[in-house]
Amino acid sequence: MTNNEVKPKAQVAAEIVRLPGVAAIEGGDCEYLLEAAALLPAAAYLLEAGYEFLADITAVDYPAEEKFRLLYQVANYHNGDIITLKLDIPREQPRADSLCGLYAAANWLEREVYDMFGIEFSGHPDLRRILMWDGYAGWPLRKDFAAEPGKYQGRRRLD
């Protein structure tokens, strides 16, 4: 795809589900649930379709379902369409493929996810902590992370 064209959302929606391991999420607007092996092909397809803007990579911790959910927000530089790729990975050995070969923006975004959750990205050229210092123990944004005992932890959730 040249830099000047981007495939419309409807066309992407039709083509991306033909890739193996990609399933559309009902009720969502261009949200797709991926299997682990489908991440790189889906991202390569989106890059080729003109979605060159990797807006965000982040993770959400669902300890009750024993998984991390990785979310990739892929957009383009022409309109406001955002394709969301969701990837569930097991909580015990969290790893995923790195998108650094396709999007240069993935470098720091994946480092932040690694720093906060401990998810390792295979193929990342320089996977080290970015917000906390090297040698910090613990993955802060995990739900079972506790800072030192005695430190005021704030209000508990109102359930």
Partner: peptide
């Protein structure tokens, strides 16, 4: 990004895509 679990008054997860973070990479 706001993730809510439907029951609580607190968000389950909030994430900010910060422009300067991506800019200085």
């Amino acid at each position: 990004l706001v993730a809510s679990d439907g029951k609580s008054t607190n968000p389950w997860r909030v994430h900010f895509r910060r422009p300067s973070f991506d800019n200085i990479a």
